[in-house]
Amino acid sequence: MTGIPLVDDREIAVGLRRLSARRSRLRLILTLAMIGVYFGFMVLFAFDKPLLGQLIAPGLTLSIFLGPLVIIAGCALSLIYVIWSQRVFDRQVGGGQP
């Protein structure tokens, strides 16, 4: 079963609309965060290669430090979204979803 609550449509409408607005806002923020992190890195890569090429430790340049960090940030932002959705959205909307 998909998560259709067994309550009257009008009853859930207000709560649902509020929840849906919160969720849309979170989606927008996380999307902008991902775009910001990625293109922040890509702008440095595209326009300031010497800065990214600086050695910050033996065997470690700024680019090698930040590059994998972008990958990890992608996974972390996804995790934040999924945890929020489960704790807040699914609990209020889905009821008994597994």
Partner: peptide
């Protein structure tokens, strides 16, 4: 980085 966009 496309995957989080796909998810959100």
């Amino acid at each position: 980085v496309g995957w989080p966009i796909l998810l959100f």
